[in-house]
Amino acid sequence: MSTPTIEVSNVSKSFGGVVANKMVSMKVEPGKITGLIGPNGSGKTTLFNSIVGYHPIDEGSIKFQGKEISKLRVQQIARLGMLRTFQQTRIYSKMNCVENILISVPHRTATFSDMFRKYPAELTDKAEHLLEFVGLYQKRHLISGDLSFGQQKLLEFAMALMNEPTVLLLDEPTAGINPTLINGLIDRLKRANEEFGITLFVIEHNMRVIMNLAEHMYCLAHGEMLANGTPDEIQNDQRVIDAYLGAH
């Protein structure tokens, strides 16, 4: 098998007395969609934060395409081509939608003088196509902070696509999205994976969504990696069922 896109080995992270992640190991294979589930507070977002360099980890190793990244800062990791979206959707709320997308161009190779260049017409076109892709074309000149929560999530997704990441970590992409629109979103996530070739790593509470999407799944409980396997294996794993039923 080829080098995993993300390889997490024995990573632990505590906040004061709370052990949020304990000796977690997992892999995201290139080109695939990998899922991460677990009860509330099981440490999923913490694992994302550790991977993208949001906070230092206590121990363990995190590799991106075989390269150790656990000591790098958020911006450096983002520029390597690993991007995340936030559970509490984050966009640039006083800018309009097109501007939100334009400023999300990849910054990998940005030089000092690039700061002072304008956006060529191709990029504006591309931004508009992406807004069309997520169904926000008509609202493209509106201030993004005025969009509904669900629309902001879609905008955040489009911003991530503009950045052309190698791998995209999505923290609950369907939370707050109208159930009738969820199928459309699943379809777009699959297209992002297949057409744009972006490897996806998705945290999701909605079982129907994640079963539909992921080829391989991990389940966290109390900060520890409980199980991993295909969606079918996970769904029928007694430990996973117990973790969910006995979570509270």
């Binding site: 958020v74 911006q75 984050r90 800018m95 990849p106 990998r108």
Partner: peptide, 21 residues
């Protein structure tokens, strides 16, 4: 220029701007 949008992004959400590289 791009500079204008970048500093606006920093104003609106600097952590997001960092996360976007």
């Amino acid at each position: 220029t791009r500079f204008g949008l970048a500093i606006n992004a920093i104003r609106d959400d600097e952590e997001k701007a960092e996360a976007m590289g």
